[in-house]
Amino acid sequence: MPKRLRQQASVAQGRTLISRTDLAKPLVKVFYWGVFAILFFGTITTFLPLLWGFMGALKTPREIFAFPPTLFPQPALNPFKWQWANYIEAVKLINYGKYFFNTLVLAIGVWFFQLVPSAMAGYAISKLRIPFMRVITVLFFASLMVPFQAILIPLYLTVIDLPIFHINLLTPGLGGGFLAIMLPAGVNAFNIFVFRTFFDQIPTDLIEAARIDGASEWRIFLFIVVPLSQSIIAVLTIFSFVATWNDFMWPYIVLGEDFQTIMVRLYHFQNLAEVSRNIVLASLMVSAIPPMLVFLIFQRRIMQGIALSGLKF
């Protein structure tokens, strides 16, 4: 089909507030371009602070506070032109490699605990026989009403002295707080709910057939159910990684010095008196790169995912 015809067809199908005939009227046209201009200005206001930060990292400390303010580094104020070296300096000073590695390891652990128990529980609720089904599901979903911040202190007291085992998860020998972030990540009623809803759509006949063929529930789960759920797992994985990368309060409280994530490290770094602001700005920019890359690469998936699970945030 020629492009124009296809466009017309899609407009007729997915029409919105303003129709094509509306748009031909001059008044509507003016209004439309007015709104367009406002939105375009909106994208400038979202972009400007980021550009200011990026450019600030290329300036000398003196110029960041120059009056009148500059956006692009001015040659007069920068004897060595744009200070690209600031970025290298920031990566070195903040010890980026080490904290990147910490964050990555933590993200993998959190990912495991956010997905595996939830997927198994979702499967059990959807397809297996369990006693006290109602009570258990209500207890799971009741936890959605209890924000983790409201039980922050008992949770902290739990991880420094785990009941029954009586171990302190914050000691360096036990991962310096990594476990204190990973294990509570298993509390995720939202993921259980998403998985259950998804598994409900998998025909029970398919699973029955596999059972008759002699496959165990583990095999069915691993080789039939999980591969069928790739799309949902992909979305939850992306969100899990980004959330761990960006998380601050709980990691700040529980992580030992050698186990900090990038965000916790950034907080301490910008508090140091000897670090100047252009270096801090540079370190902010390099710390924002990984989640931004993830967003840009998986844009389409994420937009779909927000529609599905954006309510979580």
Binding site: S118, M120, A121, F140, S143, T158, L183, G186, V187, F221
Partner: peptide
């Protein structure tokens, strides 16, 4: 299948 989630919830939520 329910056990891992129940354990996590028991320790860190309920």
């Amino acid at each position: 299948f329910l056990l891992p989630a129940v354990l996590c919830f028991a320790f860190f939520s309920w």
